[in-house]
């Protein structure tokens, strides 16, 4: 059974239909990309999945559960974690605290144990900190735990967002343009990171990306959106050959290279 399934999801903003009847299936353990020109509705689709927007029509089923009308925090606690296109860290919190916020749903601390620092509290905090440090090492942020998030370099902030999302032990990770603005070497590194996340942690990954090297490199399946609709789906080779996709991009004069420049 698919881990994530959407049926005819529609999201409108006034007169604009940002996501139009998108049907989408994603199996456990895959790495899948969503691509499409600017304004295609990719981010809006993510926002529908994570409950930040409620779709106007259609259904989203995650891990066998309908997500209809659930709040974003409930959806997150069901195992759907995400990053944001325009990095949204808690800038004035330290790196490690950012990750600890990601663990919120798993921490059991009762008010009483918090106030009196009961052993259960201390143990849990210690474990959480250890785990946070592990995650920092995992994404390549070793040793900057006490740094304020806003003081990290750009690439570090992107990594921190991923670590924060991983902290919730998700079943599935939604990454919104995680390589945007990175140099080729950094891009290479995070691409490997994504693969590790999937291979070692078994987390399913759905990512939006404009950088075709990343997309073609790691995706097992690519889904193409344009004007809110899903216009194609297939393996990287199939997508490369798909005329509609080429049209969608070239027809609007938008090629991958230009996107990169814009975002950077």
């Amino acid at each position: 059974m698919a881990l994530l399934e959407t049926v005819d999801v529609v999201k409108r903003f006034g007169g604009l239909t940002a996501v139009n009847k998108v049907n989408f299936k994603l199996d456990q353990g895959r790495i899948v990309s969503i691509i499409g020109p600017n304004g295609a509705g990719k981010t809006t689709f993510f926002n529908c999945l994570t409950g930040i927007y409620h779709p106007d029509e259609g259904q989203i089923i995650f891990n066998g559960r309908p997500l209809h009308r659930l709040r974003p925090d409930q959806i997150a606690s069901h195992g759907l974690s995400r990053t944001f296109q325009n990095i949204r860290l808690f800038g004035n919190m330290s790196v490690i605290e950012n990750i600890l916020v990601g663990m919120h749903v798993h921490l059991r601390q009762s008010p009483l144990s918090t106030l009196f620092h009961l052993p259960s509290f201390k143990k849990e905090e210690k474990e959480a900190e250890l785990k946070a440090e592990e995650l920092m090492t995992y994404v390549g942020l070793k040793g900057v735990g006490n740094e304020l998030a806003k003081n990290l370099p750009y690439g570090g902030q992107r990594r921190l967002e991923i670590a924060r999302a991983l902290a919730a032990d998700p079943l599935m990770l939604l990454l919104d343009e995680p390589a945007a603005g990175m140099n080729p070497q950094e891009t290479e590194e995070v691409t490997r990171l994504f693969r590790r996340i999937r291979d070692q942690k078994g987390i399913t990954i759905l990512l939006i990306e404009h950088d075709m090297r990343v997309v073609m490199n790691i995706s097992e399946l690519i889904c193409v959106m344009d004007y809110g609709e899903k216009i194609a789906e297939g393996t990287p080779d199939e997508i490369r050959a798909d005329t509609r996709v080429i049209e969608a991009y070239l027809g609007r004069g938008a090629v991958a290279g230009q996107h990169e420049k814009k975002v950077a």
Binding site: I52, D73, S81, V101
Partner: peptide, 9 residues
């Protein structure tokens, strides 16, 4: 928004 997306009610 980021907080609620991270599971903070």
């Amino acid at each position: 928004t980021a907080a609620i997306a991270m599971g903070v009610p």
